[in-house]
Design a protein around this nucleic acid. Sequence first.
DNA 1: TCGAATT
Length: 359
Amino acid sequence: MVTQIISTMETQVSNGPAANCLSNGPVMGSSSTDDSKTNLIVNYLPQSMTQEEFKSLFGSIGDIESCKLVRDKITGQSLGYGFVNYVDPNDADKAINTLNGLKLQTKTIKVSYARPSSASIRDANLYVSGLPKAMSQKEMEQLFSQYGRIITSRILVDQVTAGISRGVGFIRFDKRNEAEEAIKGLNGQKPLGSAEPITVKFANNPSQKTGQALLTQLYQTAARRYTGPLHHQTQRFRLDNLLNASYGVKRFSPITIDSMSSLAGVSLTGPSGAGWCIFVYNLSPEADESVLWQLFGPFGAVTNVKVIRDFTTNKCKGFGFVTMTNYDEAAMAIASLNGYRLGDRVLQVSFKTSKQHKA
DNA sequence: TCGAATT
Protein backbone atom coordinates (compact mmCIF):
# COMPACT_ATOMS: atom_id res chain seq x y z
CA MET A 1 0.00 0.00 0.00
CA VAL A 2 0.94 3.60 0.28
CA THR A 3 1.47 4.21 -3.32
CA GLN A 4 0.51 7.79 -3.82
CA ILE A 5 3.90 9.20 -4.49
CA ILE A 6 5.36 7.29 -7.29
CA SER A 7 8.84 7.38 -8.52
CA THR A 8 10.09 5.32 -11.33
CA MET A 9 13.27 4.54 -13.06
CA GLU A 10 13.41 3.82 -16.71
CA THR A 11 16.40 2.64 -18.55
CA GLN A 12 17.03 2.75 -22.20
CA VAL A 13 17.56 -0.76 -23.36
CA SER A 14 17.76 -0.24 -27.06
CA ASN A 15 20.68 0.88 -29.08
CA GLY A 16 20.37 3.40 -31.82
CA PRO A 17 17.28 5.50 -32.10
CA ALA A 18 15.81 5.86 -28.68
CA ALA A 19 12.60 4.31 -27.58
CA ASN A 20 9.31 5.91 -28.00
CA CYS A 21 5.74 5.56 -27.12
CA LEU A 22 3.46 4.98 -30.03
CA SER A 23 4.37 6.07 -33.43
CA ASN A 24 2.57 8.92 -34.97
CA GLY A 25 5.96 9.66 -36.33
CA PRO A 26 6.90 12.80 -38.09
CA VAL A 27 3.93 15.04 -38.27
CA MET A 28 2.42 16.51 -41.35
CA GLY A 29 4.35 17.48 -44.39
CA SER A 30 7.52 15.60 -43.72
CA SER A 31 7.18 13.65 -46.95
CA SER A 32 9.83 11.08 -47.70
CA THR A 33 12.78 12.81 -46.10
CA ASP A 34 14.74 11.06 -43.40
CA ASP A 35 13.49 12.38 -40.11
CA SER A 36 15.49 10.06 -37.93
CA LYS A 37 17.86 12.82 -36.82
CA THR A 38 15.29 15.56 -36.44
CA ASN A 39 12.11 14.00 -35.19
CA LEU A 40 11.70 13.60 -31.45
CA ILE A 41 9.15 11.99 -29.23
CA VAL A 42 8.44 13.61 -25.91
CA ASN A 43 6.94 11.46 -23.19
CA TYR A 44 5.50 12.06 -19.73
CA LEU A 45 4.24 15.55 -20.38
CA PRO A 46 2.01 17.01 -17.68
CA GLN A 47 -1.65 16.47 -18.39
CA SER A 48 -2.34 20.19 -18.37
CA MET A 49 0.27 21.14 -20.96
CA THR A 50 -1.22 22.67 -24.10
CA GLN A 51 -0.07 22.44 -27.68
CA GLU A 52 1.00 26.07 -27.45
CA GLU A 53 3.11 25.51 -24.35
CA PHE A 54 4.58 22.41 -25.91
CA LYS A 55 5.56 24.29 -29.05
CA SER A 56 6.88 27.21 -27.06
CA LEU A 57 9.08 25.00 -24.91
CA PHE A 58 10.63 23.09 -27.79
CA GLY A 59 10.66 26.09 -30.10
CA SER A 60 13.04 27.75 -27.68
CA ILE A 61 15.72 25.35 -28.85
CA GLY A 62 15.48 26.00 -32.56
CA ASP A 63 13.26 26.15 -35.61
CA ILE A 64 10.56 23.52 -35.64
CA GLU A 65 9.39 21.90 -38.83
CA SER A 66 6.31 20.52 -37.13
CA CYS A 67 5.12 19.53 -33.72
CA LYS A 68 2.11 17.83 -32.28
CA LEU A 69 0.81 17.17 -28.84
CA VAL A 70 -1.09 13.92 -29.09
CA ARG A 71 -4.64 14.00 -27.80
CA ASP A 72 -7.40 11.54 -27.24
CA LYS A 73 -9.54 11.59 -30.34
CA ILE A 74 -12.78 11.63 -28.42
CA THR A 75 -12.16 13.62 -25.27
CA GLY A 76 -9.44 15.88 -26.62
CA GLN A 77 -7.41 15.23 -23.48
CA SER A 78 -3.68 15.19 -23.81
CA LEU A 79 -2.26 11.71 -23.89
CA GLY A 80 0.88 13.01 -22.27
CA TYR A 81 3.19 12.73 -25.20
CA GLY A 82 3.98 14.49 -28.43
CA PHE A 83 6.31 14.80 -31.38
CA VAL A 84 8.65 17.58 -32.40
CA ASN A 85 10.38 17.60 -35.74
CA TYR A 86 13.20 20.13 -35.97
CA VAL A 87 14.56 21.65 -39.14
CA ASP A 88 18.13 21.15 -37.99
CA PRO A 89 19.36 17.84 -36.60
CA ASN A 90 21.66 19.79 -34.28
CA ASP A 91 18.65 21.35 -32.62
CA ALA A 92 17.08 17.95 -32.11
CA ASP A 93 20.25 16.83 -30.42
CA LYS A 94 20.31 19.98 -28.35
CA ALA A 95 16.69 19.47 -27.30
CA ILE A 96 17.48 16.01 -26.03
CA ASN A 97 20.47 17.27 -24.12
CA THR A 98 18.75 20.22 -22.54
CA LEU A 99 15.14 19.13 -22.12
CA ASN A 100 15.29 15.42 -21.43
CA GLY A 101 14.70 14.88 -17.74
CA LEU A 102 13.18 18.32 -17.27
CA LYS A 103 10.76 18.35 -14.36
CA LEU A 104 7.41 19.86 -15.15
CA GLN A 105 4.90 19.80 -12.32
CA THR A 106 4.81 16.21 -11.14
CA LYS A 107 6.37 14.78 -14.28
CA THR A 108 9.86 14.23 -15.54
CA ILE A 109 9.67 14.53 -19.27
CA LYS A 110 11.55 12.24 -21.58
CA VAL A 111 12.90 13.51 -24.84
CA SER A 112 14.30 11.04 -27.33
CA TYR A 113 14.48 10.32 -31.03
CA ALA A 114 11.27 8.96 -32.43
CA ARG A 115 11.42 5.69 -34.22
CA PRO A 116 10.18 5.74 -37.80
CA SER A 117 6.45 5.54 -37.96
CA SER A 118 5.04 2.16 -38.80
CA ALA A 119 1.98 0.17 -37.96
CA SER A 120 3.96 -2.75 -36.61
CA ILE A 121 5.41 -0.88 -33.65
CA ARG A 122 2.07 0.43 -32.48
CA ASP A 123 0.33 -0.97 -29.43
CA ALA A 124 3.38 -2.94 -28.40
CA ASN A 125 3.30 -1.73 -24.82
CA LEU A 126 2.42 -4.11 -22.02
CA TYR A 127 1.24 -3.58 -18.49
CA VAL A 128 2.40 -6.20 -16.04
CA SER A 129 1.06 -6.73 -12.54
CA GLY A 130 1.54 -9.25 -9.80
CA LEU A 131 5.30 -9.18 -10.12
CA PRO A 132 7.23 -10.47 -7.13
CA LYS A 133 8.34 -7.48 -5.08
CA ALA A 134 11.87 -8.74 -5.22
CA MET A 135 11.98 -8.89 -9.00
CA SER A 136 14.29 -6.32 -10.50
CA GLN A 137 13.83 -4.53 -13.75
CA LYS A 138 16.61 -6.58 -15.23
CA GLU A 139 14.99 -9.82 -14.15
CA MET A 140 11.69 -8.72 -15.59
CA GLU A 141 13.41 -7.98 -18.88
CA GLN A 142 15.05 -11.38 -18.86
CA LEU A 143 11.65 -12.94 -18.44
CA PHE A 144 10.18 -11.04 -21.36
CA SER A 145 13.16 -10.89 -23.68
CA GLN A 146 12.48 -14.39 -24.99
CA TYR A 147 9.52 -12.95 -26.87
CA GLY A 148 11.24 -10.13 -28.68
CA ARG A 149 13.25 -6.98 -28.53
CA ILE A 150 12.45 -4.84 -25.54
CA ILE A 151 12.46 -1.13 -26.19
CA THR A 152 11.78 0.14 -22.68
CA SER A 153 10.87 -1.34 -19.37
CA ARG A 154 9.93 0.03 -16.02
CA ILE A 155 8.92 -1.20 -12.61
CA LEU A 156 6.87 1.20 -10.54
CA VAL A 157 8.10 1.76 -7.04
CA ASP A 158 6.67 3.27 -3.92
CA GLN A 159 8.67 6.27 -2.88
CA VAL A 160 7.49 6.63 0.66
CA THR A 161 8.84 3.20 1.47
CA ALA A 162 12.19 3.90 -0.05
CA GLY A 163 11.60 2.48 -3.46
CA ILE A 164 9.95 -0.85 -2.80
CA SER A 165 8.49 -2.36 -5.94
CA ARG A 166 4.76 -2.05 -6.36
CA GLY A 167 4.77 -5.25 -8.33
CA VAL A 168 3.59 -3.57 -11.48
CA GLY A 169 5.47 -2.42 -14.51
CA PHE A 170 5.64 -1.86 -18.22
CA ILE A 171 7.38 -3.55 -21.08
CA ARG A 172 7.47 -2.05 -24.52
CA PHE A 173 8.41 -4.40 -27.32
CA ASP A 174 9.68 -3.32 -30.67
CA LYS A 175 6.80 -5.06 -32.42
CA ARG A 176 3.20 -5.58 -31.53
CA ASN A 177 3.31 -9.24 -32.45
CA GLU A 178 6.14 -9.71 -29.95
CA ALA A 179 3.94 -8.17 -27.31
CA GLU A 180 1.10 -10.47 -28.27
CA GLU A 181 3.34 -13.50 -27.95
CA ALA A 182 4.51 -12.33 -24.54
CA ILE A 183 0.91 -12.08 -23.37
CA LYS A 184 0.18 -15.59 -24.60
CA GLY A 185 3.32 -16.94 -23.02
CA LEU A 186 3.42 -15.11 -19.72
CA ASN A 187 -0.05 -13.96 -18.69
CA GLY A 188 -1.17 -16.03 -15.73
CA GLN A 189 2.23 -17.68 -15.39
CA LYS A 190 4.20 -17.87 -12.19
CA PRO A 191 7.70 -16.59 -12.50
CA LEU A 192 10.28 -19.07 -11.32
CA GLY A 193 9.98 -19.55 -7.61
CA SER A 194 7.03 -17.21 -7.20
CA ALA A 195 3.72 -18.37 -5.78
CA GLU A 196 1.71 -15.71 -7.54
CA PRO A 197 0.91 -15.57 -11.23
CA ILE A 198 1.57 -12.37 -13.10
CA THR A 199 -0.92 -10.56 -15.25
CA VAL A 200 0.26 -9.38 -18.64
CA LYS A 201 -1.94 -7.24 -20.83
CA PHE A 202 -1.76 -4.36 -23.22
CA ALA A 203 -1.21 -1.09 -21.40
CA ASN A 204 -3.59 1.81 -21.48
CA ASN A 205 -2.47 5.05 -22.97
CA PRO A 206 -0.35 7.14 -20.64
CA SER A 207 -1.86 9.90 -18.56
CA GLN A 208 -5.34 8.65 -19.20
CA LYS A 209 -7.05 9.29 -15.96
CA THR A 210 -10.67 9.97 -15.38
CA GLY A 211 -11.55 13.40 -14.14
CA GLN A 212 -12.59 11.64 -10.96
CA ALA A 213 -9.18 10.08 -10.52
CA LEU A 214 -7.46 13.38 -11.10
CA LEU A 215 -9.65 15.06 -8.51
CA THR A 216 -8.95 12.28 -6.07
CA GLN A 217 -5.26 12.66 -6.67
CA LEU A 218 -5.45 16.39 -6.01
CA TYR A 219 -7.48 15.86 -2.90
CA GLN A 220 -5.12 13.28 -1.54
CA THR A 221 -2.20 15.60 -2.01
CA ALA A 222 -4.00 18.39 -0.23
CA ALA A 223 -5.21 16.15 2.56
CA ARG A 224 -1.76 14.85 3.32
CA ARG A 225 -0.32 18.33 3.37
CA TYR A 226 -2.69 19.38 6.11
CA THR A 227 -2.53 16.25 8.19
CA GLY A 228 -0.65 17.67 11.10
CA PRO A 229 0.17 16.34 14.54
CA LEU A 230 -3.06 17.42 16.16
CA HIS A 231 -3.88 16.34 19.67
CA HIS A 232 -6.30 13.47 19.85
CA GLN A 233 -8.86 15.50 21.73
CA THR A 234 -8.78 18.13 19.08
CA GLN A 235 -9.08 15.48 16.43
CA ARG A 236 -12.11 14.01 18.07
CA PHE A 237 -13.67 17.40 18.13
CA ARG A 238 -12.81 17.92 14.49
CA LEU A 239 -14.27 14.58 13.56
CA ASP A 240 -17.47 15.39 15.38
CA ASN A 241 -17.80 18.57 13.46
CA LEU A 242 -16.90 16.98 10.16
CA LEU A 243 -19.32 14.16 10.55
CA ASN A 244 -22.11 16.28 11.89
CA ALA A 245 -21.70 18.71 9.12
CA SER A 246 -21.33 16.11 6.42
CA TYR A 247 -23.71 13.41 7.41
CA GLY A 248 -25.82 14.62 10.29
CA VAL A 249 -24.96 11.66 12.45
CA LYS A 250 -22.79 11.08 15.45
CA ARG A 251 -21.79 8.01 17.33
CA PHE A 252 -18.60 6.67 18.74
CA SER A 253 -18.23 2.97 19.26
CA PRO A 254 -17.52 1.87 22.82
CA ILE A 255 -15.03 -0.74 21.61
CA THR A 256 -11.67 -0.17 23.16
CA ILE A 257 -8.27 -0.43 21.65
CA ASP A 258 -7.45 -3.34 23.93
CA SER A 259 -10.42 -5.37 22.80
CA MET A 260 -9.50 -4.65 19.23
CA SER A 261 -5.97 -5.85 19.50
CA SER A 262 -6.87 -9.04 21.29
CA LEU A 263 -8.84 -10.51 18.42
CA ALA A 264 -7.84 -14.11 18.25
CA GLY A 265 -6.93 -16.05 15.18
CA VAL A 266 -6.46 -13.25 12.75
CA SER A 267 -3.13 -12.01 11.69
CA LEU A 268 -3.02 -8.36 11.02
CA THR A 269 -1.40 -6.70 8.11
CA GLY A 270 1.58 -5.39 9.93
CA PRO A 271 3.39 -2.11 9.81
CA SER A 272 5.74 -3.39 7.10
CA GLY A 273 7.18 0.07 6.81
CA ALA A 274 4.13 1.19 4.94
CA GLY A 275 1.59 1.59 7.72
CA TRP A 276 -1.46 -0.18 9.02
CA CYS A 277 -4.05 -1.28 6.56
CA ILE A 278 -7.65 -0.92 7.66
CA PHE A 279 -10.64 -2.65 6.12
CA VAL A 280 -13.84 -0.63 5.89
CA TYR A 281 -17.03 -2.45 5.09
CA ASN A 282 -20.59 -1.38 4.23
CA LEU A 283 -19.81 1.68 2.21
CA SER A 284 -22.53 2.81 -0.15
CA PRO A 285 -22.22 2.27 -3.89
CA GLU A 286 -21.71 6.01 -4.22
CA ALA A 287 -18.90 6.17 -1.68
CA ASP A 288 -15.71 7.72 -2.87
CA GLU A 289 -12.22 8.34 -1.55
CA SER A 290 -13.09 11.68 -0.02
CA VAL A 291 -15.42 9.98 2.45
CA LEU A 292 -12.58 7.83 3.70
CA TRP A 293 -10.28 10.80 4.04
CA GLN A 294 -12.90 12.65 6.01
CA LEU A 295 -13.56 9.71 8.28
CA PHE A 296 -10.00 8.70 9.02
CA GLY A 297 -7.95 11.84 8.48
CA PRO A 298 -8.85 13.38 11.83
CA PHE A 299 -7.33 10.45 13.70
CA GLY A 300 -3.87 10.95 12.36
CA ALA A 301 -1.60 10.34 9.42
CA VAL A 302 -3.45 8.67 6.59
CA THR A 303 -1.22 7.75 3.69
CA ASN A 304 -3.66 6.02 1.41
CA VAL A 305 -7.33 5.43 0.89
CA LYS A 306 -8.98 3.21 -1.65
CA VAL A 307 -12.58 2.55 -2.51
CA ILE A 308 -12.98 -0.76 -4.30
CA ARG A 309 -15.17 -0.34 -7.32
CA ASP A 310 -16.77 -2.63 -9.81
CA PHE A 311 -14.76 -2.40 -12.97
CA THR A 312 -17.72 -1.95 -15.27
CA THR A 313 -20.20 0.07 -13.22
CA ASN A 314 -17.56 2.04 -11.33
CA LYS A 315 -19.76 1.79 -8.25
CA CYS A 316 -18.25 1.00 -4.88
CA LYS A 317 -18.42 -2.70 -4.10
CA GLY A 318 -19.21 -1.92 -0.49
CA PHE A 319 -15.75 -1.83 0.96
CA GLY A 320 -12.50 0.00 0.94
CA PHE A 321 -9.11 0.31 2.56
CA VAL A 322 -7.32 2.96 4.52
CA THR A 323 -3.65 2.96 5.42
CA MET A 324 -2.50 4.82 8.49
CA THR A 325 1.08 5.32 9.53
CA ASN A 326 0.81 4.97 13.28
CA TYR A 327 -0.64 2.03 15.12
CA ASP A 328 -2.25 3.98 17.93
CA GLU A 329 -3.93 6.36 15.57
CA ALA A 330 -5.16 3.47 13.44
CA ALA A 331 -6.44 1.68 16.52
CA MET A 332 -8.18 4.84 17.68
CA ALA A 333 -9.81 5.27 14.29
CA ILE A 334 -11.01 1.68 14.31
CA ALA A 335 -12.29 1.90 17.86
CA SER A 336 -14.18 5.06 17.00
CA LEU A 337 -15.46 4.25 13.55
CA ASN A 338 -16.40 0.60 13.82
CA GLY A 339 -20.16 0.59 14.23
CA TYR A 340 -20.37 4.17 13.12
CA ARG A 341 -23.59 5.05 11.39
CA LEU A 342 -22.99 6.70 8.06
CA GLY A 343 -26.31 7.72 6.58
CA ASP A 344 -28.41 4.58 6.78
CA ARG A 345 -25.44 2.25 7.00
CA VAL A 346 -23.43 0.96 9.92
CA LEU A 347 -19.78 0.72 9.11
CA GLN A 348 -17.61 -2.20 10.02
CA VAL A 349 -14.05 -1.16 10.52
CA SER A 350 -11.14 -3.40 11.43
CA PHE A 351 -7.56 -4.05 10.63
CA LYS A 352 -7.31 -5.75 7.28
CA THR A 353 -6.78 -9.45 7.68
CA SER A 354 -4.07 -11.20 5.81
CA LYS A 355 -5.13 -14.19 3.80
CA GLN A 356 -1.50 -15.11 3.24
CA HIS A 357 -0.29 -16.04 6.67
CA LYS A 358 -3.46 -16.81 8.54
CA ALA A 359 -2.70 -19.64 10.91
C1' DT B 1 -17.56 -8.80 3.57
C1' DC B 2 -10.67 -8.07 3.01
C1' DG B 3 -7.83 -4.75 -3.51
C1' DA B 4 -5.16 -3.26 -7.25
C1' DA B 5 -1.84 -1.06 -8.97
C1' DT B 6 -1.22 2.57 -15.77
C1' DT B 7 5.19 5.40 -16.77
